[in-house]
């Protein structure tokens, strides 16, 4: 791997922090992903996001088809020393694009949302998405957004409905990091109200 664990991951972090504090704002990681030559079972921006936050102190759970799940789990554990855990215990939920519907559903039911005393003990979802763009699809508003922000993620409206259910009891909820194939990331924290404007 040709990426620099210190300086490149610092850049990735700053971009994700920027996007998390401005939900729906798309950050580009091209300058770093182009250094990655290996083939991963996930896209490069997704891999870098995982690499930035995971280490031996936190756990993760992969949602994907069997083959990819096994490979990604192995790669993430060996790169970050992070351990895999059950979906109801994992600090990070890594979801690939072709994840089976029943696994997503189960993850939404079981994943951690924190408790009122410690709302930070919730799961952060890192998702592989379609091409992210600021065209109509989701209408975002809330802290970090000046007015309304549009975001197109390519994920199904039912996914966002389930996400909305999961953040109903603020401050409990999940935070989402989206990573696409053209090395872009966007974030949707629990405070963001997501309105589905897409007609399917």
């Amino acid at each position: 791997m040709m990426i620099d664990q210190i300086h490149d991951l610092q850049q990735v972090y700053r971009n994700i922090l920027h996007s998390m504090s401005r939900p729906g704002n798309i950050s580009k990681l091209n300058s770093i992903t182009k250094k990655l030559k290996e083939e991963f079972p996930c896209n490069h921006a997704f891999f870098l996001s995982a690499l930035t936050f995971l280490d031996a102190e936190v756990t993760f759970h992969v949602i994907a088809n069997e083959v990819k799940k096994e490979r990604l789990t192995e790669i993430i554990s060996s790169y970050t020393m992070s351990k895999t855990d059950t979906v109801d215990q994992a600090d990070f939920i890594l979801m690939l694009q072709d994840a089976p519907e029943y696994q997503i559903e189960q993850a939404f039911i079981e994943c951690k949302v924190g408790n009122l005393r410690d709302p930070q003990l919730s799961a952060t979802w890192i998702l592989e998405s379609d091409l992210l763009s600021n065209s109509a699809g989701l209408s975002l508003s809330g802290p970090g957004i000046n007015g309304v922000q549009q975001l197109q993620t390519g994920l199904s409206p039912s996914f966002w409905q389930k996400r909305n259910e999961k953040v109903k009891e603020y401050p409990l909820g999940i935070d989402v990091i989206l990573a696409d194939f053209s090395s872009q990331v966007a974030c949707i924290p629990r405070t963001t109200s997501v309105m589905i404007t897409e007609v399917v």
């Binding site: 972090y13 922090l17 998390m20 930035t52 919730s122 952060t124 970090g144 629990r190 405070t191």
Partner: peptide, 10 residues
């Protein structure tokens, strides 16, 4: 970094 990200989300 993980803590700061959570802080921004809450």
């Amino acid at each position: 970094r993980r803590t700061a990200l959570k802080a921004v989300a809450i």
